[in-house]
Design a protein around this nucleic acid. Structure first.
Length: 287
DNA sequence: CGACTTCCCTGGCCGC
DNA sequence: TGCGGCCAGGGAAGTC
C-alpha cells in the first residue's frame, strides 16, 4: 500500500535514473489502466525532464508540457530496469536473479521502453493502479482536488486546525485518510501517527484538544519523514523502483501488530474497523 | 453539502 | 487436494 513515503522513495530513485531519457515504444497489456486512448502515440519520443510526487502519485514531467501520472494504488510497482535487465539502484545494479520483478511477469500490466534500451515495468496484481498522460492544466485540476501536502510548509498548525473544524463529525482516522483534506497519508501512517500522538483513532475530530491537534500534526510529520529515511514500508508488495524493500516495516508500532503487546504499556493491541479500514491501536494508552 | 455504501481486482487464507 | 467464501483496501462513484 504505497503511501507518501513509499511514493517519495520511488520518486527519489526514478529522478536519479530516468531524467533525460526518451520514451520510445510501450506495451499496454491492460488497456483500462492507461489513458487517454492516444497514450502510446503521445508518449513516444517524449523526454523526461523531472520526476515529482503529488499526494500518492508519481508525476513524471516530460519536455513539451506533458505529465505522465502514475498511481500505484494497492499493489502497484514501478520498476526501473537498465539495458542489461538489472534493477539499478543509485548506480549499483541489484542481482536480477533475486527479483522476478526485473522481468515482465504475469502481473506486468504496462512496459514503457526508453530509447536507450532501459525500461520501466509497471506490475500490479490487482489492477487498481493506473497511468495517465495529461497536460499542465489537467495536472493542475487533479492537484486542486487534493489537500495539503503534509511535509510542505503549507501544513501549518492553523491549516490542520481548519481541516479538523471543517469535518468536526468525522472520526480522526477517517479524516487523516481523506486525500481531499490532507494528501498522502494512508492506513499505515494514520495508525502510526495516532499511536505516537496517543489519540484513539475513533475519536471525532471536534473532540481533540488543541494540545492533541498540535501533537498529532507533529507526529504525522515526523512519522512520514522517518519512513522516507528508511525507504518506506514493505508490508507485502511494495518495492522501490530499484527493486529494494523499505525498512520502515521494522519500525512499525501498531500497524499489522494486532494481538501483540503495545511497546509503550505492554497491553494487547486492539484491531477494529474504522471507515471500512482495518485499524490497530492501543486502547490503554490511546485515549 | 456531508456521511455512508458499493465497487473495482486478485492472491492468500480459512474451513470443510 | 480442491473449492467456495471471504478479506485486504485507495479512491471513484453512487445513494441517502
Amino acid at each position: 500500500m504505497p503511501e507518501l513515503p513509499e511514493v517519495q522513495t520511488v520518486v527519489n530513485h526514478l529522478a536519479r535514473q530516468i531524467k533525460g531519457k526518451v520514451f520510445s515504444d510501450c506495451q499496454i497489456k491492460v488497456a483500462k489502466m492507461v489513458s487517454p486512448k492516444k497514450f502510446k502515440v503521445l508518449i513516444k519520443n517524449s523526454k523526461v525532464s523531472n520526476v515529482l510526487r503529488r499526494a500518492k502519485m508519481i508525476v513524471i514531467e516530460l519536455a513539451g508540457g506533458q505529465y505522465l501520472i502514475v498511481h500505484l494504488k494497492m499493489t502497484g510497482q514501478l520498476v526501473y530496469v537498465n539495458r542489461r535487465g538489472q534493477a539499478a539502484g543509485g548506480g549499483h545494479p541489484i542481482k536480477s536473479a533475486d527479483f522476478a520483478i526485473t522481468r515482465p511477469n504475469k502481473f506486468t500490466r504496462i512496459i514503457l521502453n526508453f530509447a536507450d534500451g532501459s525500461r520501466l515495468l509497471f506490475h500490479d496484481i490487482r489492477k487498481f493502479g493506473w497511468l495517465k498522460l495529461v497536460d499542465r492544466a489537467e495536472l493542475a485540476a487533479i492537484s486542486r482536488r487534493l489537500g495539503v501536502e503534509p511535509l510542505s510548509k503549507n501544513f501549518t498548525l492553523k491549516k490542520f486546525q481548519d481541516i479538523l473544524e471543517r469535518r468536526p463529525n468525522l472520526k480522526i482516522k477517517q479524516l487523516l485518510l481523506l486525500q481531499e483534506l490532507i494528501a498522502g497519508i494512508g492506513n499505515i501512517y494514520a495508525d502510526e501517527s495516532l499511536f505516537m500522538a496517543r489519540i484513539n483513532p475513533g475519536r471525532q475530530a471536534k473532540s481533540l484538544t488543541s494540545a492533541e491537534i498540535r501533537r498529532l500534526r507533529s507526529t504525522i510529520i515526523s512519522k512520514l519523514k522517518e519512513a522516507i529515511a528508511f525507504g518506506g514500508t514493505s508490508v507485502n508488495t511494495f518495492v522501490s523502483s530499484s527493486g529494494r524493500r523499505g525498512h520502515f516495516v521494522e519500525k512499525l508500532k501498531v500497524y499489522q501488530r494486532s494481538g501483540q503487546k503495545c511497546y509503550r504499556c505492554q497491553s494487547i493491541l486492539t484491531k477494529t474497523v474504522i471507515g471500512g479500514r482495518g485499524t490497530v491501536y492501543c486502547s490503554h494508552c490511546q485515549k
